[in-house]
Amino acid sequence: MGEYLLVSIQVDMHDRLAMTLQADLTDRIVSVHAKGVLIDISALEMVDSFIGRMLGDLAAMSRVLDAETVVVGMRPAVAITLVELGLALKGVRTALNVERGMDLLRNRIDARGREDAGRE
């Protein structure tokens, strides 16, 4: 989707799949010069601490590659689990659904564009 990447996690993540996803995503960000990444986890029913950390890592990696990341569609049960696990995903932006996530992403990128323009 233009300069945005949409990652939709549809199956239950296991550890190896998560590692593959990280590698694929970082490759794609570089190859398409993505400015924003949207991770849709609305199909994710179960999380463990590894998946929680992986989400945080994904966001951090995208940021390093100069792409804004928004995690969308988290289920209530998943949110409670992550909080109980002590993984509040600090520094990761979140939105309720893909639509809201896209709005947030556009706003962020616009704001960043203005900041950069102001600096020059």
């Binding site: 995690v71 969308v72 988290m74 209530p76 998943v78 949110a79 409670i80 992550l82 909080v83 109980e84 509040a88 995903l89 979140t94 939105a95 309720l96 659904n97 809201r100 996530g101």
Partner: peptide, 12 residues
């Protein structure tokens, strides 16, 4: 704080 964190994860 937990409630706030969980709500934040849901984008609120």
């Amino acid at each position: 704080l937990k409630t706030v964190a969980a709500a934040r994860l849901m984008g609120a």
